[in-house]
Design a protein around this nucleic acid. Sequence first.
DNA 1: GCCCTACTTAGACGAACTTCTATCTGAGGA
DNA 2: TCCTCAGATAGAAGTTCGTCTAAGTAGGGC
Lengths: 116, 116
Amino acid sequence: MTAIAGTCCSPIAREPLSETDAAELAALLKAVADPVRLRLLSMIGSHPGGEACVCDLTDAFELTAPTISHHLKVLRTAGLIGSERRGTWVYYWIIPQQVARLGELFTPLAEPAVTG
Amino acid sequence: MTAIAGTCCSPIAREPLSETDAAELAALLKAVADPVRLRLLSMIGSHPGGEACVCDLTDAFELTAPTISHHLKVLRTAGLIGSERRGTWVYYWIIPQQVARLGELFTPLAEPAVTG
DNA sequence: GCCCTACTTAGACGAACTTCTATCTGAGGA
DNA sequence: TCCTCAGATAGAAGTTCGTCTAAGTAGGGC
């Protein structure tokens, strides 16, 4: 398949990002640009039932509970995860739409539709 | 389409990231988690011919040349762009495979093939 | 050879980030 | 009510990051 102007590349390589878009996307990327937060996101998303309580997460790291709490807050503030307290425990889950936004930026466009 | 275990989600939500993978990916993400570098990457990728010289990039920012040079170095060290001096000017281009790695992490798996 | 332009390197400084300890809130059990 | 456990918040310490100025390297023209 040859490159067709306008459909060849990942969105980031199709046209220059505006200053505003760049700032917004950089904030989202910064939230995941940390090994601990990347693992937290991955552990939450792959946990049975699609959600995990903090107690499921803390033991995997050699970090104190406040530190884990801080990283979860960064992810939640970025809109990448949601949370809810149920009784004694607080549960976290991934917000797939927001995670997908990151993917879209860098993923080469697939064939436009089933036109061929 | 219902979620099928093992094919439902973006790779990051399919199974927990190893400590090593998380560290490597976080380093890659950190390289793009900055508004200036995101715009540089976008300007380079969308420039006619697929490459841009530093002189094409500097004027778009209210930053000094050494600062732009620093950000380009971060992107190049991460393997996201390549560079070459040709005469007076230094040209930069995107390395699509490395950019695509970022996309793969967060993009939900497409249908496995044309099986349905 | 000399100078000008294009870009990079070196070093410094303030802001932001990651982690900690100490403290606080909120739920459940005796 | 009081104690304990789960988790969050506050504030401090050390580190990393983004930016600058000053100086260095490399190519091209006179």
